[in-house]
Every structure is written in structure tokens, then in C-alpha cells.
Amino acid sequence: MNDTLFERLGGTQGIKKIVDDAIDTHMNNPAVNARFLPYKDDPERLAQIKQHSVDFFSAGSGGPVNYTGRDMPDAHKGMNISPAEYMYVIDDIFVALDKNSIDEETKKEVLSILWSLKGMIIAQ
């Protein structure tokens, strides 16, 4: 594989679709939707969160994007996300990856990245 992870995820448009699908899945997942449903009433904030997510994953996967959002500990500070919630979110992301026909090797690389972020997000 010579393509970057960014390219294998479909570039900016592919990552945008994956983020949209993952957040839709979070909103329908009773284990985590309480954290996401309030954003339905604030579409500007939801759009901002989605854009930061697209930029974060684009930059982190080798794309030509400059992420200007907060770092993971600051972005999740005070949320007290549990290990179980984090696992549900990962599961939802994998639903989105499957929906977008992302191959197994690419999914393994995404999982590795998500796992590396765990300590920066859980119990902040």
C-alpha cells in the first residue's frame, strides 16, 4: 500500500462522509446518544464539531489539512467519558467505516489510532 491513510479513507470527502455517518450512528446509539443529541438543537455547533472532526482525522491520516482545534484532553475535559462509552464510540465509527466500504487493513490502522487516543479522552 503506497496510498496514505487519508487517501484510503477517501480524502476529505470520504472522511466527511465517515464523520457524518459516525455521528448519526452515535445519535442513534442509546449507550452514547445523550452526549450527541443536544447538538441536534444547535446545528451550527454540530457543524463545527463535524468540521473539527473531519480536520482532525484528515490531518492525522496524512492529508493536506491543518487542524486548528483543541487537543484531545482539552476537547474532552469535564466530559468524564467512561471506557465503555469510548468503546461504543469506536464501534459506531466502525459501523461508519463498514458503511463506506473501508477495507480491513485500513480499519486496523484506524483502530490503532483510535486506541492511541484513548488515554487522552477517557475520564478527562
Rank of each mutant, 00 (worst) to 15 (best):
A123W: 07
S116N: 14
K17N: 06
L114V: 06
N33E: 09
R35A: 11
G11A: 05
F6Y: 13
G60F: 07
S112F: 10
L5R: 10
Q124S: 12
A96M: 11
D91V: 01
I15R: 02
A34P: 02
G11Q: 05
D98V: 07
E7F: 01
V95A: 07
Q124L: 12
S58A: 14
Y39S: 03
I81T: 10
A59C: 09
M72Q: 08
I90Q: 09
I122H: 03
G78M: 08
M72T: 01
D20Q: 11
S82T: 15
G69R: 06
Y39W: 08
D42G: 02
F36R: 07
F56H: 00
P30T: 09
Q51E: 13
S101D: 14
T25E: 14
T106A: 03
Y86H: 00
E105C: 04
V65S: 05
T12R: 15
E109W: 05
L111S: 15
P73Q: 01
H52L: 08
H52V: 00
D21K: 06
S116V: 12
A123E: 15
D20H: 08
P73T: 00
G10F: 09
D55N: 14
I102E: 02
Y88E: 08
G62N: 09
D20N: 11
P73M: 07
E109M: 14
R45C: 05
A22D: 04
E85Q: 15
D103L: 09
I49C: 01
P64L: 11
I18Y: 06
Q124E: 14
V54M: 12
V65Y: 04
I23V: 12
G119N: 15
H26N: 15
S112A: 14
N29L: 12
A75C: 07
N100C: 05
V54C: 08
K107T: 04
I121S: 08
V65T: 13
P30Y: 09
L5I: 07
P64M: 11
L46G: 03
R35P: 01
Y86R: 01
A84W: 04
G10H: 09
L9T: 02
N80C: 03
T4L: 02
R45L: 15
P43K: 10
A75Q: 06
I93P: 02
A59L: 11
I23D: 03
A123F: 11
I49E: 05
D92M: 01
Q124F: 12
Q13F: 03
L114I: 06
T4F: 01
V19F: 08
D21H: 02
E104R: 13
I81M: 12
F6C: 01
A75I: 02
D92S: 05
I90A: 10
K107L: 04
G69A: 06
A59R: 06
N29D: 15
Y88G: 00
D55S: 11
V110Q: 11
P38D: 04
M87A: 10
S112I: 10
E109A: 15
Y86A: 00
L46M: 11
D71E: 10
I121H: 03
M1N: 05
L117T: 10
E109I: 14
F94I: 07
N80D: 12
M120P: 02
E85N: 03
H52C: 00
H52S: 04
M1F: 02
K118G: 00
L97N: 06
P83I: 00
F94N: 11
W115L: 12
A75Y: 04
K40D: 09
K50I: 04
K99E: 09
V110T: 08
F57Y: 01
I113M: 15
K107M: 07
T12D: 11
P43R: 09
D98H: 05
